[in-house]
């Protein structure tokens, strides 16, 4: 699969990574190269194979319903670039 500029722009938007317009063609070529190399997998017949869910041969372990965490607002906010009045602060969001 060869990626065009528009597709790269779209996935960059999905991934929330700003990519300058002039970088799109180079990136498209690079990503296409990787995808082309990946496509050697097409030669493997996997029609009767189940996808692996986990290499751990076990099921989900349960935690008991106890309050064991929280009550640490300062630690939660300590690394925030901007916080105020106990909140994280971000640029205005319009719903």
């Amino acid at each position: 699969m060869s990626l065009d500029k528009a597709t790269v722009a779209h996935i960059a938007k999905l991934a929330r990574i700003a990519v300058p317009e002039q970088d799109l063609p180079g990136l498209a070529t690079e990503l296409s190269g990787i995808l082309k190399w990946i496509e050697q997998l097409d030669s493997v017949d996997t029609s009767k194979v189940e996808p692996l869910s986990s290499v751990v041969n076990a099921t989900l372990r349960f935690r008991e319903d106890n309050i064991t965490d929280g009550g640490q607002r300062d630690a939660v906010l300590a690394n925030a670039p901007v916080s105020a009045q106990g909140f994280f602060v971000v640029p205005k969001v319009v719903e």
Partner: peptide, 24 residues
């Protein structure tokens, strides 16, 4: 439930902001 789905922080309504938050 007392605690959250994937962490041990409390679920009670109306607490002060960010006081019922685990690092998870």
């Amino acid at each position: 439930s007392k605690a959250k789905l994937f962490s041990g922080a409390a679920t009670e309504f109306g607490a002060e902001p960010n006081t019922q938050v685990s690092f998870v």
